[in-house]
């Protein structure tokens, strides 16, 4: 599945990284605690979270995650988007809740990593 596919399935907005839309993704991790992400994310390339601060982007950077999906309508600010741009991390925002977001992606073939 590509980042574009996820964006369509989740009815999400591209906040940054349309040029990364064709990147292929396989494994996903979802959490609001960044320490959990750091501990258990494994080789995931997508992070789904309801937390919205610069450390989300930093955490993604440390783990070579290529796409962050913010749920529940959370909107990162310009500083966070600038950080994501600097690291080439695509950023999507969806109105769906975390559970629904994960469910839609799972139903369509994505799996959890680690």
């Amino acid at each position: 599945m590509t980042i574009r596919d996820m964006q369509k399935l989740l009815d999400a907005k591209f906040l940054y990284g349309e040029e990364l839309a064709d990147l292929d993704v396989q494994f996903v991790f979802s959490a609001d605690m960044m320490s959990d992400v750091l501990a258990y994310c494994g080789q995931c390339s997508v992070l789904i979270t309801g937390l919205c601060n610069p450390q989300v982007v930093r955490t993604a950077e440390m783990l070579d995650i290529c796409c962050i999906i913010f749920v529940r309508g959370k909107m990162p600010d310009d500083n966070m988007l600038a950080l994501a741009r600097g690291k080439s991390i695509a950023v999507l925002a969806t109105e769906h809740y975390m559970f629904t977001t994960c469910g839609i992606l799972y139903e369509n073939g994505l799996r959890g990593g680690a």
Binding site: M33, M34, S35, D36, A39, L51, N53, Q55, V56
Partner: peptide
């Protein structure tokens, strides 16, 4: 509330 402080820091560093 910032996503840390769950008591995973030092264990993660060791891991």
């Amino acid at each position: 509330s910032l996503g840390f402080g769950a008591g995973m820091g030092l264990p993660n560093m060791k891991r």
